[in-house]
């Protein structure tokens, strides 16, 4: 699947997008975040805010317990500040 990062999550991870395959056992958004945090200090830093980081699966807002099976694109970003 494709992972996208925006705003300060993007800056901390150091890239805007990447391809990744989560290992078996990673079934939800929260589990995906836990797995990403173990990939390196930049990910640990990006996701240290934990539940404050928002996610979207295939361009729709997704809660931490949302299943990621079948997702083509998962995005992570800070709380939104438009308007």
């Amino acid at each position: 699947m494709k992972l996208l990062y925006f705003a300060w999550v993007r800056e901390r991870v150091g890239r805007a997008e990447e391809e990744a395959e989560a290992p078996a056992g990673v079934g939800t958004v929260a589990e995906l975040i836990d797995w990403l945090r173990g990939r390196g200090p930049e990910y640990e830093h990006a996701f240290e805010a934990g539940p404050a980081i928002r996610a979207a699966i295939d361009k729709r807002h997704a809660r931490p317990d949302a299943p990621i099976a079948g997702a083509r694109e998962i995005a992570f970003f800070p709380p939104m500040t438009g308007g």
Partner: peptide
């Protein structure tokens, strides 16, 4: 406006 501010993916 209220919904746009909290759910449209924009970051300032």
């Amino acid at each position: 406006m209220d919904y746009l501010k909290t759910s449209a993916p924009f970051w300032k």
